[in-house]
Design a protein around this nucleic acid. Structure first.
Length: 307
DNA sequence: AAGACGAAAGTGGTTGA
DNA sequence: TCAACAACTTTCGTCTT
């Protein structure tokens, strides 16, 4: 596909590399390091949100990127030729408009320039693929144009945009991770995320617990078998309607916890809870539900006897 | 002593009147 | 706009390994 892949993980030397096409990243299954993330972007989608402004800001032609603060385009009110067609009164109006336009656009550009720098910082901290970064930049740009940043800190809107972009691309990061990377309070990230997506009419499907498994498993250093077993458990749980309405991270964590028990790779509830960003109590609740419905007790006992 | 378990009270968000 | 509600968290005491 795109050039040669790295064969060994530079971090731990493991050869257990996993290429995830949709997410555009290569992950080391042993240590969880994202080895390669600058891959070709697949299925990038371009939706039009700004129906009102579609005329004035038609964006066709050369490829554009939203990670550059003015997208290489500027807006100016009028041109010199227009001036001569106006009488005195209209001329004043014209100058006022132009002055405003100038102020507004430079303000927006200044803001964008700063914000996108911040966005890149957070994004690289979280090792997010380029496609997500682009998406986040696009969302942020729209948010600024709609004046959604007013009354909110720039950083929190950046974090919210990034979170939304992650969700849309099924490359989930928890609110906690976003919070840690951006230095914004978790609540605030969630709030602006909801606000921005609502105002921009972006719909986001509830995230799938299975998307979290790989990342959680690798930071817990669990084997591939445990991982795939966890996913099996998840599927069963979904069929028995244990998943709806519950937080996906809690479910993923519990599935992983059970799976680790079955495979004799026991982790404490606290360890699992920490990487999943939920509490032990939540794990316990999910865990109990899983046991009740999915008759897994005997499998756990089986591995216990072996020891 | 550490981990697992569960009860009780608190938090922030959603829903429906 | 407000109250009821569900999911999740915090805290804490007890039991198990």
């Amino acid at each position: 596909m795109s050039g040669e892949f790295v064969k060994k993980c530079p971090e731990c030397g493991g050869i257990n590399l996993f290429y995830n096409k949709e997410k555009g990243e290569v992950i080391c299954k042993d240590c969880g390091l994202v080895v390669e993330e600058k891959m070709v972007d697949f299925d990038q989608e371009w939706r039009e949100f700004d129906g009102d402004e579609a005329e004035s800001r038609r964006r066709t032609g050369a490829p554009m990127t939203y990670t550059q603060y003015d997208q290489g385009l500027g807006t100016e009110v009028g041109q010199k030729a227009d001036l001569y067609r106006l009488d005195g009164k209209d001329k004043n109006k014209f100058f006022r408009l132009r002055k405003w336009q100038y102020r507004i656009s430079t303000a927006i550009e200044r803001n964008l320039k700063l914000a996108l720098a911040e966005l890149k910082r957070v994004s690289s901290y979280l090792k997010l693929p380029k496609s997500v970064e682009e998406e986040a930049a696009r969302i942020y740009t729209l948010a600024v144009q709609r004046g959604l940043v007013r009354g909110r800190s720039m950083e929190s809107v950046v974090a919210g945009s990034l979170y939304a972009a992650c969700r849309r691309h099924d490359v989930p990061r928890t609110l906690d991770e976003l919070s840690e990377a951006s230095g914004i309070e978790k609540k605030e990230v969630g709030r602006t995320y909801r606000f921005v997506t609502r105002e921009l009419g972006i719909t986001i499907l509830p995230s799938n617990p299975a998307d979290y498994i790989a990342r959680f498993a690798s930071s817990l250093k669990l084997s591939a078998e445990t991982q795939s077993r966890a996913i099996e458990i998840l599927e069963k749980a979904q069929r028995s309607e244990l998943t709806s309405g519950r937080g996906p991270t809690g479910i993923a964590a519990a599935a992983l916890y059970v799976s680790a028990l079955i495979h004799g790779e026991k982790r404490t509830q606290r360890e699992v809870a920490d990487v999943a960003g939920v509490t032990e109590v939540t794990i316990r609740n999910r865990y109990k539900e899983l046991l009740d419905r999915l008759k897994l007790e005997k499998e756990i006992k089986k591995t216990k006897k072996k020891e």
